[in-house]
Design a protein around this nucleic acid. Sequence first.
DNA 1: GGACGCTTTAGACTGATGGTCTAAAATTGT
DNA 2: ACAATTTTAGACCATCAGTCTAAAGCGTCC
Lengths: 222, 222
Amino acid sequence: MNHRLHARERLQKLPDAQRTVWLDIAEEEFREFGFKAASLNRILTRANLSKGQAYYYFADKGELYRAVIERSFDEFSSLLDAQFTELGSVAEYWRQIAVLFGNVTAVLQRNERLAELGRGIYRDAMAQDAVADLLERLHGRLCRLIENGQRLGAVRSDLPLALLTNIVFAAAREVDQWFALNVQGLDQDSALALNRRVSTLFIAMLATDAGASAAAQPAASS
Amino acid sequence: MNHRLHARERLQKLPDAQRTVWLDIAEEEFREFGFKAASLNRILTRANLSKGQAYYYFADKGELYRAVIERSFDEFSSLLDAQFTELGSVAEYWRQIAVLFGNVTAVLQRNERLAELGRGIYRDAMAQDAVADLLERLHGRLCRLIENGQRLGAVRSDLPLALLTNIVFAAAREVDQWFALNVQGLDQDSALALNRRVSTLFIAMLATDAGASAAAQPAASS
DNA sequence: GGACGCTTTAGACTGATGGTCTAAAATTGT
DNA sequence: ACAATTTTAGACCATCAGTCTAAAGCGTCC
């Protein structure tokens, strides 16, 4: 009945090896050109796929892209393995945030392939549409994290949660991009130091007036 | 010799009326679909332009887009008419920032056409490339504004200027977008109040520790 | 007034694109 | 062995941005 689901189901029950090969080739194309500029025909040629085959397993170009992104998305998640304790003090909260921030940075720095693919999502709106549900999941996680901070009184509650989340998300992307363009000529020490300073910016924009001091010197308060 | 310049020169010495009509039609298409999804052929049809004519006055689709954006860009600038005094106190600086923030918000809220067109620039990377020089100008202004704050000791200097500027820019876009999606169901008073609260977020992320208190209560320090 | 030369226009044409469709091939169940 | 279903191949379609050529418009000078 639902063609999109049909295609997905077919893809799912395909041998892993075949699916992997296809997605590897597709990923390379998408990574190099971004969603829109990537050529589906070129992917099909390189993967020895006929048009009929392709559209039998993927409803459209967007679904192929989604499959590629989802795979890397899962990989990213597993590399992060972020476990969050439900409750804690304000200082504990900020420490947790700092750890997460560092982890994300480290994973993206170590895994350029993943990082570049992720950046591509934001190169055009059509790409974002194609993986909207995945982005929604990611956004939701960050949202819950911030909400947690609000409950603790660590994070400001005077702005709509969604707005705050979006701003943080956008800022984080900008930081990622800046680092991606400026890693060369930055030794690891100064990169780490800069990273810590950037995290204070995030804390500054998020913290309540009361929470700011607690975040400023987490070592002293523990 | 340079074809691009040829096309631009030819466009420039065209009667205003004709150029305006063409750009109006093109703008409508670009506003509705964004750069990439907009159909050049459709624009030409609607404007009664032949292919030859179009490519005689515009080097390519990107140049047409650039012409459209540049026109609105100038309009935006004239609506803002931001005049900045070179020097001043820290408190004066933050007041100036707040005024600018309010002005930009007001202009974009009053002029939905302009706002929507501007948002379209960030919908795909190709659009940004096409108007890169205009964006560079805009970015430069914000950069100088922040640099000014740094000289006064109001704005933190522990992060690369370009990074700080990019973050602020990205955050501002996010705010704009959120307001664009949520204006309905927001009376003007609460919108204004929210806007003020958002501006405190910008100040929080920009200010030095010393500068933060001065910004928090600008009325008391003057 | 006519011929020359430059500017401008029309639109057929190109090589791509993503996506559709049909008929054959392969596979499966009985 | 036959029928039914799943899978594949690739011709085909509309549309895209962009190119090219031939003609039309038009001012100028003889």
